[in-house]
Amino acid sequence: MKLSVCLISLFLVLPVVGDGHGEVVMDDYGREISLQSIPQRIVSIAPSVTEIIFAIGAGDKLVGVDSESDFPAEANDIKKVGTYISPSLEMIVVLKPDLLVVSDLTPLQVVNAIEERGIKVFVVAPERIEEIAESMRKLGVILGVKDKAEAAARDFEERAAAVEKKAALAREKPKVYLEFFPYWTFGPGSFGSDLIEKAGGLNIGKKLKSPYAEVSNEFVISENPDIIIITQGKHASTTISSVKERPGWSSINAVRNSRLYYIDDDIISRPGPRMADALEELYSILH
C-alpha cells in the first residue's frame, strides 16, 4: 500500500521534474531566480501579477494576494496580505509561500525583507506593452505552466498585433486626452500613452515631462483633443458631464462633437492580460 502510494506520487512528480526545473530565469530587476521544484504556494502582491498568474492557468496555486487584487473574481476569495506598498510580512510568512511574485510597485526594502526570511521573490515589472507577453512566459517557466503561458502570451500578442495592424491602416490619427484622475494624464513612457499610440491615436500627454503628470485647463484647451477618455473604477470618480463643464472646455473639439468616453481604470493601468482588452476598446473608441 505504502509502496504503491510512493510509486504513484513518484509518477506524479516525474513529469514535473522533467518540466525544466532548476532552470534559471531572470526577473525584471535583473536578478537570477532558480527554483528546485515548481512552487505550489504562491503569494502575489500586485493586481497585475495576480491577473497574469490566473491568465496563464496557475491561479489555483495562489494562497495570498494584495488587497487591491480583485480580478478575476476568484481573486477575491484568496487571503489578503495587505497593500502592495507595505504588505504585512507576518501574513506572508504565515501563508508559507514557496514563491512571492511582486511588481515594481513594492518597495525594494520590502522585497529584501521578505527574502531575508528565506522566501524567493520574483519581480514582474514590464515597462512596455510587448513585455507583458514576456512576463507571462517567464512566469510560465517558473510556475511550471509553460504551455498554457505560451498560449496566453501568443493570444495577447496576436490581439495586440491585430489592433496595431488595423490602426496603421486608419486614415487619420485623432488627438486623445486620457484622464485617470482629475487633471492627471498619461505622459511619455506610461502604459496609457503606449495604448493610445498603438490603438492609432495621438496622446496629447506625450508632450509632458513625466509618465504620470498633472495638466492645466490651458494645456488641454490649447492641445484641443478630438477625443476625451475618462477612466472609471474604484479610484476614479470623474464624470463626463463634469468634464464638459470645466472652464473653457466647451471649445474643445471632443466636447463640441460629444466624443467623450469612459474606460475601465484597471484595464489601462494594470500591465496584465487585460491590456489587450484595453487596446481593442480604445481602437473602437478612436475609429
Binding site: S67, K80, G82, S86, S88, E90
Partner: peptide
Amino acid sequence: RMLLIPNE
C-alpha cells in the same frame, strides 16, 4: 499594524 489589519 492592528487598526486596518492586515494592512500596515
